[in-house]
């Protein structure tokens, strides 16, 4: 591994928030701006001639339910971690990870259904925006899945036991964020067509 400095002083200073968590919050602001850019483009574009719409595939309702449940499992994972119930923590991490993958799969099925019913890349309507916006969101979920996988691997390591809450908090905050982001996007797609 690449050597680096680790600053105990950071933790000891009794700051309200760990710098790594703070980095995440700023990053969330940045990600919000990206989706704000895309959804504003959507709204602007809606006023142009040639706007087409689609009917929302059922898969998106299921995926919404799945990602909501995954927020619950990651919450339970964090709770187990603070209670030092490491086996349950590992299980909850794994459950969240799988739910994340199921979410991505359901999004993919939703896309397939849309494509089959005539909404392809050709055109410039709500469907084309949906592919890009929901696709980028799924990519962000996948990033979260990778982070969960790393946490899970670390939790399996019996040689080094870590009771550092920060990585768990960071991943779980991010996971709640991509959950909320999808809820926002889903409502947006349903309301603004």
């Amino acid at each position: 591994m690449i050597p680096s400095l680790e600053f105990k002083s950071v933790v000891d200073q009794n700051k309200k928030i760990h710098p790594h968590k703070f980095i995440l919050w700023v990053a969330i602001g940045s990600i919000i701006m990206m989706f704000a850019g895309l959804t504003s483009a959507y709204i602007v574009k809606r006023e142009q001639p040639g706007w087409t719409t689609y009917t929302t595939p059922l898969a998106f309702y299921y995926s919404t339910a799945v990602i909501l449940i995954s927020s619950l499992t990651i919450f339970l994972a964090g709770k187990s971690f603070t209670e030092r119930r490491m086996i349950r923590y590992r299980k909850m991490l794994a459950a969240t990870l799988i739910l994340g993958l199921v979410f991505i799969l359901l999004q993919w099925l939703g896309f397939r259904h849309l494509w089959a019913t005539g909404t392809t890349f050709h055109g410039s309507g709500a469907g084309q925006f949906l592919y890009i916006i929901a696709g980028l969101h799924a990519l962000h979920v996948f990033g979260g899945v990778i982070a969960l996988f790393v946490l899970w691997l670390r939790a399996r390591n019996t040689r080094i036991r870590s009771y550092n809450m920060v990585p768990v908090d960071v991943v779980s905050t991010y996971w709640h964020f991509v959950d909320l982001l999808w809820i926002y996007l889903f409502i947006f797609f349903l309301m603004v067509q």
Partner: peptide, 26 residues
């Protein structure tokens, strides 16, 4: 941090217009 992501959004749409046949800008 607040403005670069919006450029990225614009570039992604451009990429789809170039290669996927969408008409965001065309």
């Amino acid at each position: 941090v607040l403005s670069f992501p919006v450029l990225l959004s614009g570039l992604i749409l451009l990429l789809f217009d170039r290669h996927a046949g969408t008409s965001f800008y065309l």
